Computed example of a mutant assay.
Amino acid sequence: MTRPATVHGSASTRTGRLVRLMAASALLTAACATITPATTPDPNRLPPVLAQDEIIRPYTKIGTVEVSRERLGSIDDLKNEADEWAYDALGAEAAKLGADAIILPEVQAKKGSYLFFPSTSIKAKGIAIRFN
């Protein structure tokens, strides 16, 4: 009676490698994870721009923040970028004042030209507030 030829250890070797690979992946994933308590304020977080109906607490006006910028390009191409830049820039200025939020934002983008190239002038203004 002849026995079929088997390769000893090949299946167990693959299983062992797979187990070691999964353990290493889990260890690396756990090592990279960090837990940040919810009560720790993020110093890089900008104050949000709030609509009037989002304000549910009493607040104190700190001041008006204004930003402006000139960009080359058509107003149609830069409209979304202009709004994003304006809100980020207003947030950065309000953060310097210690504001909790910005209300009543106004963003204006106007067409212009620089020599032969279209340009866009972006101006934004809002009121920086601190919650009581």
Rank of each mutant, 00 (worst) to 15 (best):
V107T: 03
A24T: 06
T64D: 10
E81Q: 10
S10C: 06
D83I: 00
F117D: 12
A33F: 08
T40V: 15
P37E: 10
T34G: 13
E54P: 06
S12K: 05
L28P: 08
D100V: 00
G98K: 03
P41T: 05
G98H: 08
I62L: 15
P105R: 03
N44G: 09
V49L: 03
E106W: 13
K111E: 11
R20C: 14
K111I: 04
K110T: 09
T2M: 12
A109D: 01
K96Q: 07
N80K: 10
C32I: 05
D77I: 03
R69I: 00
T29K: 08
K123T: 07
E93S: 01
K79M: 05
N80G: 09
T2E: 12
A51D: 13
L50P: 07
S121Q: 14
P41W: 08
A26N: 12
F131N: 04
P41K: 08
L21K: 09
A24F: 14
L46A: 02
L115I: 01
I102C: 00
V65R: 00
P58S: 12
G63V: 01
A128R: 00
A94T: 02
P4M: 08
L90F: 01
V65M: 02
E66K: 03
S74H: 12
S121V: 11
D77E: 11
L28V: 09
T2G: 13
K96W: 01
T39H: 15
K125D: 02
R14M: 10
P41L: 09
R45D: 07
K110N: 13
L72F: 08
T34S: 14
F131P: 04
I56E: 13
T40M: 15
V65L: 04
A23I: 04
V49E: 00
